[in-house]
Design a protein around this nucleic acid. Structure first.
Lengths: 147, 147
DNA sequence: GCCGAGTTAGGAACAGTTCCTATTGAGGCC
DNA sequence: GGCCTCAATAGGAACTGTTCCTAACTCGGC
């Protein structure tokens, strides 16, 4: 689950370049927060990143970790998984279906597709565990938001 | 975005049957919470459901709405979108990739698949908005949790 | 109509995230 | 290399969404 040294170095370079291009300061804190996410494939949560960064920068604050992660996401160096709005949403449609999500307003629309329902996933996944469901998330900007 | 009366009736029947089968009380509050989710396709959040249910049951508490939604989810009458753990997780892999998610421990593993990358989504989606990305979420139980 | 287990209302507690403000330090300029 | 300025930080307070707690209530069986 560890990223190769070579890959980590490349990611750090991309980070430094982004800072220079955007006129942002490559502070010690920012470098260490990015490094922690860049060196693992385990998709750590904020608490985990905070704990690990504190080993190298004992005075770092949780808020700095949050601010830095948001900045890095905005600049396209990281992506955020899942919590999209922070609010749970519910759906009484229990048939198999997929979702179109507007990334601007958060609106979600269902769609069904037989073709997508019998998608075959790569064979390697079988060795990772039992597959229970395959769900396709299509992201974009809905017609209303596009204006 | 409204569900047909016929469909709502069928969903309410399924709810009543589930209560009988599981020995749960079909209280006024539970019926109205379920009805609010069953009658719409807009995937409302808890706050929205609460606000609507209060019009019919002014004394209902927010906690009851939460409890009822969790119960209905557990019984398979509703599904919860997105917030999976409530925590944000980050990934420095910015190449296009998909996720295998263990629903027991929350572990996430990346996988790449050219075949999935050029999935074609139903044509109707084009009229809903601009599609920016297609992301496949495979859910299941990972080898570690399966034991 | 009465009883008891299951359910609820309301508020307190909790967890994750964001905001606020005084202080600090990165990086351009001499 | 040292100085200066403003962006960035630490630390704690505030906020938001969710869950827990307990006394009161109510549904459904008697």
């Amino acid at each position: 689950m560890a990223v190769s040294d070579q890959e980590v170095r490349e990611r750090m370079d991309a980070f430094m370049q982004m800072c220079r291009r955007s006129g942002l300061r490559a502070t010690h804190q920012r470098r260490e927060v990015f490094r922690e996410v860049a060196r693992t494939e385990e998709h750590p949560d904020v608490e985990t990143i905070y704990r690990r960064v504190r080993k190298r920068v004992p005075t770092v604050s949780l808020d700095t970790v949050y601010r830095t992660l948001s900045l890095l996401e905005e600049k396209g160096l990281l992506c955020r998984l899942e919590p999209f709005s922070g609010r749970a949403r519910f759906d009484a449609n229990t048939d198999s279906h997929h979702h179109f999500i507007c990334t601007r307003c958060g609106r979600v629309r269902d769609f069904a597709s037989e073709q997508l329902d019998d998608l075959s996933v790569p064979r390697e996944l079988r060795s990772w565990g039992d597959v229970r469901s395959v769900h396709v998330q299509v992201r974009g900007i809905c017609a209303k938001c596009r204006g």
